[in-house]
Design a binder for these strands. Structure first.
Length: 489
RNA sequence: GCUCCCAUCGUCUAGGGGCCUAGGACAUCGCCCUCUCACGGCGAAGACAGGGGUUCAAAUCCCCUUGGGAGUACCA
């Protein structure tokens, strides 16, 4: 096989979404696996919808996921430029070639006329195709249209006989009857090429060897193959990967939840988890492995093993996997990820002192096995960093509202006040004492204390919590809880 | 409507004629650990869409039906 060159070619009309990210990932994995080149090309020929902001968003998404490109925006390369709007002369050159060869012609039909044609075809239940009426316009007729002020598009003279076969690494081969392919537009009236045309010129000129893209492009492919043939370009290999669907089995979109990669980042998903999950959405290795490091992915990925059927995006599984990756982080790494969230929430100073950092790490150590999203550290740790934490209404009512609570807390208040440190050794006898005093199980003693100190009935182990919160604040919080109980009486 | 793609547990998948009384993971449900939660451990339930073939033998090959998806633009 000649040196592998693949590309990810998004159109900058929105942020990088998970579908695009997965396509980019598969291209990237394929390139890395074969020691090939991964090209990033921006398909911005839709002048009305393309924005620079989107370009930045896509680049940010790629960087977040760690999908580095060998050629493309910011890094350049020998096959540039990598923005289609900067390649206009190239496209025009080949349009000339096509026109001279009689494989393209100007069409002056207006959108309205075309719509009327389609409508008529629909009514007669005919196949909906451009009828080729402008194919043989005389110079005179063209002149007349121009005089009217009409701006022509350029259409490709498609082959109508026979069939076109798409060689597809994932699906075997897909065959289309050429009679289905009409004279499609390759240059719009504003002179900008259409997708189907530009993509062929670019993939050919950039010497792309494997076109890996979404299944939604299958119907475009025969058109593109005809173009390759008409232009005398070698035809690349194709691999059409399945769609990603939402839980209702329709194409994944915003209404199914977050789809922007950067939104996942903001919510506390780790790049490695995203990559691992996305890789598994439509690809599987064997009958047992689900966790793959990047290197393993590169080593084991192959297009042949990509699934043919569409995959439903499972937020729960992604979340589980994110939890797995969070637990694998070293404490320092977890700190680096969590700190911005804590800081943004105002729970920790922007530039914490050494002791403050230590405290944060002590807290995070307790949280690491409990969060599935990094962002969850904020609400899970609030009571460690501030006395201004909310009472979880239901938990408080359930635990502090019980008859035992008052007596237990009063007992603990006194006992804990007389202890010299909040170490496990000093604390344990206190709890034992309370258990005896009230003839309660440990849980019944601890829950009121937990709620008093954290405002909720779910927290890390009580010894850890008390040690971090410390004696003074613990006593104050017990007082607050006692007040709450008193108010209810 | 027409064209094309697809079809194994709720979800992602393993399976490419006998190894399948169909394996794994998430989710679900039990149990264990246990001060709550999480983590961890153990276990349960759960699928070859239907019908025809081919074959000694089919989840695996072929056909049809059904179901889902995509495309049908001067969007990409």
């Amino acid at each position: 096989m000649s040196k592998v060159r693949v590309r990810f070619a998004p159109s900058p009309t929105g942020f990088l979404h998970v579908g695009g990210a997965r396509t980019a990932l598969y291209n990237w994995l394929f390139a890395r696996h074969h020691g090939g080149t991964f090209v990033l090309r921006i398909e911005d020929t839709d002048l009305a919808r393309s924005t620079e902001e989107s370009v930045r968003g896509i680049l940010d998404g790629m960087r977040f996921l760690g999908l580095d490109w060998d050629e493309g925006p910011e890094v350049g390369g020998e096959y540039g430029p990598y923005f289609q709007t900067e390649r206009l002369e190239l496209y025009h050159k080949y349009v000339q070639q096509l026109m001279e060869a009689g494989r393209a012609y100007e069409c002056f039909c207006t959108p309205e006329e075309l719509e009327a044609q389609r409508q008529a075809q629909r009514e007669q239940k005919l196949d909906i195709h451009y009828d080729g009426r402008c194919r043989h316009l005389t110079e005179e007729q063209k002149g007349a249209y121009r005089a009217e002020g009409r701006k022509p598009v350029v259409r490709f003279v498609s082959e109508k006989e026979g069939q076109t076969e798409i060689p597809d690494l994932i699906r075997g081969s897909v065959v289309f009857q050429n009679s289905q392919i009409d004279d499609f537009v390759i240059v719009k009236s504003d002179g900008v090429p259409t997708y189907n045309y530009a993509v062929v010129i670019d993939d050919a000129l950039m010497e792309i060897t494997h076109v890996v893209r979404g299944e939604d492009h299958i119907p475009n492919t025969p058109k593109q193959i005809q173009l390759y043939k008409a232009l005398g370009f070698p035809i690349p290999e194709f691999a059409h990967i399945p769609m990603i669907l939402g839980s209702d089995k329709t194409r994944l979109s915003k209404r199914h939840g977050a789809t922007s990669v950067m939104q996942f980042h903001d919510e506390g998903y780790l790049a490695d988890a995203m990559v691992n999950y996305l890789a598994l959405l439509g690809w599987g290795y064997d009958d047992s492995q689900t966790l793959f490091s990047r290197d393993e992915l590169i080593e084991k990925f192959s297009l042949e093993r990509v699934s043919k059927n569409p995959a439903v995006f499972d937020f729960q599984k992604l979340q589980w996997m994110n939890g797995v990756y969070i637990r694998e982080l070293t404490l320092d790494e977890f700190y680096d990820h969590a700190f911005p969230h804590l800081q943004k929430a105002g729970l920790v100073p922007a530039e914490p002192s050494e002791e403050e950092q230590q405290l944060i790490k002590t807290v995070l150590k307790e949280l690491q096995s409990r969060v599935k999203l990094i962002s969850e550290v904020v609400e899970m740790s609030r009571y460690f960093f501030t006395d201004d934490f909310p009472y979880n209404e239901e938990a408080v009512r359930k635990v502090l509202g019980k008859g035992d609570a008052k007596g237990v807390l009063e007992y603990l208040r006194a006992a804990l006040a007389s202890v010299s440190s909040f170490s496990h050794e000093e604390l344990e006898p206190v709890f034992n004492g309370a258990m005896e005093e009230f003839d309660l199980k440990l849980g019944k003693v601890i829950q009121p204390l937990r709620v008093a100190v954290t405002g909720t009935n779910v927290s890390p182990g009580i010894y850890e919590v008390l040690e971090i919160v410390g004696q003074q604040r613990t006593l104050a919080r017990i007082d607050r809880a006692l007040d709450w109980i008193a108010q209810g009486e």
